[in-house]
Nucleic acid binder design. Structure first.
Lengths: 118, 118
DNA sequence: CCTTAGACGTAGATTGTCTACTGCTAGTTC
DNA sequence: GAACTAGCAGTAGACAATCTACGTCTAAGG
């Protein structure tokens, strides 16, 4: 049985999923299921995106124009909806990436303040 | 007038405020207003906590036992509720700090994947 | 007296994620 | 051919944290 240990798993912070999806699609077009797996694999199994978060997020991103979707056939010979970045999506990814690093920086200032020079 | 430019300002990610508050109180007891100012100052004005987020968060933290509050008098001679970390709060801060760095790490794996060794 | 700043607070909207389902198809195994 | 598993898409509803936009009271300074 060896039930997968959920201990290591991290919940996402609200607002980061869109960036992860956009980033994943930078590797190339992919269907929803594959995106979820890619995020999990790339993150060393730390990040798992539930389908109940993933699909609404994908629809959201399409609606905002960051992604385009087309039906196709997956490697496993199943019907699948392939998503790809639009140019607006690429721009959005840059913004989100920037915001994320700013946020990490700002957090760092508080969590690990620079030692006062004497 | 020189309206404060809000451009640089970052919205918080949901789930990080508690950590910021706990961390700020590691410097010593402080009242709500002061905590908000400290976060803003320490973060180089990047992070601003609105009072509508701050006070509910403080009450939440007290309810969960991470903080204790006592009324006192501020430096400006105003009545003020001073918060301080409980030992449970200190433990919680460690957990949140750990979770945060894990999350940053996991995000990094996706946003900046390690170059495949040849 | 009036204004500004310090201090505490609530109400309601919004947003995004989670849990927990459903449904359908292809391939494998018995 | 029946049953099962894995791949793939999706929705409904709960929930939690933040935001905007208010309101109230007090002290200090002009």
């Amino acid at each position: 049985m060896t039930k997968t240990p959920d201990d290591r798993r991290l919940d996402l912070l609200q607002g980061t999923l869109d960036m992860l999806i956009l980033r994943t699609l930078q590797w190339g077009p992919c269907h929803g299921h594959g995106i979820g797996q890619a995020i999990r694999a790339q993150s060393d199994d730390l990040l798992r995106v539930e389908t109940g978060s993933l699909y609404p997020a994908l629809h959201r991103l399409v609606k905002r124009g960051w992604l385009k979707a087309d039906w196709g056939i997956s490697e496993a010979n199943q019907r699948a909806k392939y998503y790809r970045l639009t140019s607006a999506g690429k721009a959005q990814l840059l913004r989100e990436r920037d915001r994320w690093s700013q946020l990490v920086h700002a957090m760092g200032l508080i969590m690990n303040p620079a030692p006062r020079k004497e």
